[in-house]
Computed example of a mutant assay.
Amino acid sequence: MVRAGRRAALAGAAALTAVLALAAPAAAHAEVEADTPRALAENVTLSFVSEAESGTAGFTELRVVLPEGIAPGDVRLGEAPKGWRLTATGDGYRIAGPALKAGVDAEHTIRVRQLPDAKEIAFKTVETYSDGEVSRWIELPGGAAEPEQPAPVLKLKPAAPGATTGPTGTPTPTPSPTPSPTPSATEPDATATATGTATEADAARPDDNSSTGVVISAVLAAVALLLAGGWWLAKRRGTTPPSQG
């Protein structure tokens, strides 16, 4: 009986521990990923996720401290929650906007001109909720103990051969071809229409110069015939002998 009681107590304790473990909320954290996680890579897109840890309030602002080697002027906002805007700060940037719904993660992307030459870089992040609660993910890894509020860390591969560090402060523009304007399918090209209309009108209109030339030629021919006839009559009268009565 005693052994059976002990077994039942142990089983009950284990079940209670399992229930409490499942009921406890998962620890929230902030993360960062890159489409090109390589030192000195250029025009890299970084994706950030701040997991919600409040069941009653939503995110309204994120403050990110950039690592050494990335200047605030090297950053441009990519995707973000609707209505959120990025503002550069002295050591990084601030992204804020209308409060998200409670329990909704805050996700955004930025485009960085160039990553620094390092093995890993950290982005200290401070999160603010609509009820004023602040969560700081700013602890850097190091030492025996794992940090309770670790900053998002991005591990980088070695730089590509020949990669160099460019000037900071101005993002490298991504070249994109400029499309030539294409006339609308419903609107004919005005230049082509005007040209075509003029050509058709010219073809349909008689040639004024040609008509005038024909008339002048006919008049000159008639005058020449009259002069020739008069000369012939005069000559004939002069050579015919007078009749004798």
Rank of each mutant, 00 (worst) to 15 (best):
T109M: 03
V49C: 03
P242C: 00
V134Y: 08
T191W: 13
R236F: 00
R205W: 04
S50T: 08
P152M: 04
E187N: 13
S130F: 00
T60A: 01
A52N: 09
E61W: 09
L154D: 09
V223P: 11
L225S: 01
A8R: 15
V49Y: 02
I121M: 06
P188W: 05
L20Q: 06
G166E: 10
P150Y: 07
T164S: 14
E51L: 07
G213Q: 11
Q244E: 11
R237A: 07
V64F: 01
A222Q: 02
A15L: 14
P67T: 03
G169R: 06
G245H: 12
E33R: 15
P177Y: 01
T199I: 02
A39G: 02
D105R: 04
A24P: 06
M1N: 14
A57V: 07
H29I: 12
T89N: 12
E146P: 10
S217I: 08
K124P: 09
A106I: 04
G238P: 05
L154F: 00
L62P: 09
T109L: 07
A106G: 05
R76P: 06
F48C: 00
T164G: 08
V49K: 10
P25M: 06
G245K: 11
S130L: 03
A80I: 05
P37S: 11
A24L: 07
P188S: 11
L227V: 12
D74S: 07
E107A: 12
V219R: 02
G78L: 11
M1W: 08
T109S: 14
P171H: 03
G230T: 12
F123L: 04
A57W: 10
E42W: 09
D117Q: 04
E51I: 02
E133Y: 04
A11L: 13
L225W: 06
P152Q: 10
R38G: 03
V75P: 09
V219I: 13
P147C: 06
A18S: 03
P152W: 10
E187K: 14
L66M: 14
A218I: 15
T212K: 15
A26I: 09
E120M: 10
P179Y: 09
A88I: 05
P158V: 05
S180I: 13
T239N: 03
T60R: 04
G55H: 03
V75M: 10
R6E: 15
A71E: 15
L100C: 01
A27W: 10
A21H: 08
P116Q: 02
T182D: 12
A57K: 02
G213H: 10
Q244T: 13
R113P: 05
A18C: 11
T240D: 09
G229E: 04
T60Q: 01
A57L: 01
V112G: 04
D131L: 05
K119T: 12
S217E: 14
T240N: 05
T45A: 01
I138G: 06
G83C: 04
L226E: 00
P171C: 02
I138M: 06
S130H: 01
R6A: 12
A160G: 04
G55L: 05
Q244H: 15
S135V: 14
Q244N: 02
A71G: 09
T172Y: 08
V19Q: 09
T60P: 02
L66P: 01
G238K: 14
